Amino acid sequence: MAIADYLLPGLLLLIVLCALWKRVNAYQAFVDGAKEGISLFLSIYPALLAMMCAITLLRESGLMTLLSQAVARLIPTLPSEIFPMIFFRPISGSASLAVLIDIFKNSGVDSLAGIMASIIQGSTDTTVYVITLYFSTVGIKKIKNSLAIGLMADVAGIGMAIFLTLMFFS
Score class of each variant (00 low, 15 high):
48 L>Y: 12
53 C>V: 13
30 F>V: 02
44 I>M: 13
94 S>L: 06
50 A>G: 03
51 M>H: 05
133 L>D: 00
160 M>D: 04
57 L>W: 11
3 I>N: 08
48 L>R: 04
64 M>A: 11
55 I>K: 12
65 T>W: 06
64 M>D: 13
6 Y>P: 00
152 M>L: 14
162 I>G: 03
6 Y>E: 09
139 G>D: 03
148 A>I: 14
133 L>N: 03
117 A>E: 08
150 G>I: 05
131 I>T: 03
142 K>V: 03
16 V>A: 15
142 K>L: 04
9 P>E: 11
97 L>S: 15
45 Y>C: 10
75 I>G: 00
130 V>C: 12
144 K>P: 02
141 K>H: 12
40 L>S: 10
43 S>K: 14
73 R>I: 06
67 L>H: 06
10 G>V: 04
92 S>N: 11
157 G>T: 05
154 D>T: 10
127 T>M: 12
82 I>E: 07
48 L>H: 02
33 G>K: 04
99 V>W: 09
49 L>R: 09
1 M>F: 13
71 V>A: 04
147 L>A: 11
86 I>Y: 13
73 R>Y: 08
146 S>E: 11
128 V>T: 02
26 A>L: 15
96 S>L: 10
25 N>I: 00
12 L>G: 14
85 M>K: 08
77 T>G: 00
37 G>D: 00
50 A>H: 03
141 K>Y: 11
90 P>G: 07
82 I>K: 05
74 L>I: 02
134 Y>Q: 08
77 T>Y: 05
50 A>S: 06
99 V>M: 15
55 I>Q: 12
34 A>H: 07
2 A>Y: 01
168 F>S: 06
159 G>C: 01
20 L>R: 09
4 A>P: 00
120 I>R: 12
153 A>C: 10
10 G>M: 04
8 L>C: 08
11 L>E: 08
3 I>Q: 05
106 N>W: 03
115 I>R: 15
96 S>I: 06
33 G>Y: 06
108 G>A: 08
53 C>A: 14
60 E>P: 01
167 M>G: 00
44 I>K: 06
104 F>A: 13
22 K>D: 07
37 G>P: 00
93 G>Q: 11
53 C>G: 03
119 I>E: 14
145 N>V: 02
15 I>T: 14
154 D>L: 01
21 W>M: 10
45 Y>E: 14
81 E>C: 12
93 G>E: 12
93 G>W: 12
152 M>C: 12
